[in-house]
């Protein structure tokens, strides 16, 4: 569909009001997403208060270098998608499509890196109820840490996967001139979703990878 043929539905006064309604709806959805992940973070907080040493021991088994690289990848991808929206607003198409492709590729590379992490954890016997070989006083508490770790990171990875698919669709549509400076709301909403996925990871990184690293 060509952006120039996009009519304003009759319930809206003008394109500005249409965009305001769409972004407000998206932010309402993002607020529910904050609470969705918030429950997991609240559970994490309570368990960490109860088992501080076991959580530190569990965190030391995660791959801090890979976690840091993954964070940098997601932060960079957020910038790329923000630049892509900017480019479309300024009337560009090819660069915007390329930036969306880069964002999707960075998201996919994040998933691959996380896959390597999961594999390493499987080999180390760090998957509760599936392959758990940890012994010692902290083993029980570490099991709780790793349960939360898998819940949080798997739900996050699910969001990243959905985001990658959306970004590929947006890149395809941008390339086929579906969006221009006047109309690009779906692209803007996809970017908002991707930024939220990034924000969730910004909090996952210190809580999962950086506990008890000193000394």
């Amino acid at each position: 569909m060509n952006a120039r043929l996009h009519p304003v539905p009759e319930q809206f006064d003008d394109p500005v009001q249409q965009r305001e309604a769409a972004t407000l709806g998206m932010w309402a959805f993002l607020a529910t997403e904050i609470l969705f992940f918030g429950v997991l973070f609240a559970g994490y907080t309570l368990c960490r208060v109860r088992f501080p040493d076991a959580f530190a021991a569990g965190s030391r088994h995660t791959d801090m270098l890979l976690g840091t690289i993954e964070t940098a990848v997601l932060l960079t991808s957020s910038c790329a998608v923000a630049l892509s929206v900017r480019e479309v607003q300024l009337g560009g198409r090819q660069l915007a499509t390329a930036l969306l492709g880069i964002t999707a590729a960075l998201g996919a590379s994040f998933l691959v890196m996380h896959g390597f992490e999961y594999y390493a954890e499987y080999r180390e016997g760090l998957i509760p109820a599936v392959h758990w070989t940890q012994q010692g006083v902290y083993a029980k508490g570490m099991e709780i840490f790793y349960c939360l770790y898998y819940f949080i990171t798997l739900f996050h990875s699910l969001h990243v996967s959905i985001g990658v698919v959306l970004l590929i669709v947006m890149a395809w549509r941008t390339w086929h001139r579906a969006y221009d400076a006047r109309y690009h709301t779906p692209l803007e909403l996809t970017a908002l979703y991707w930024h939220l996925v990034d924000i969730v990871w910004i909090f996952v990184y210190p809580l999962i990878y950086l506990v008890g690293r000193a000394g």
Binding site: P15, Q18, R182
Partner: peptide, 19 residues
């Protein structure tokens, strides 16, 4: 579908000015 608007249409490009 695209009826004439009763109110004057705001015509600036959708969204805030790009950063």
């Amino acid at each position: 579908m695209n009826t004439p608007a009763a109110r004057p249409q705001r015509s600036h490009g959708s969204g805030p000015r790009p950063p």
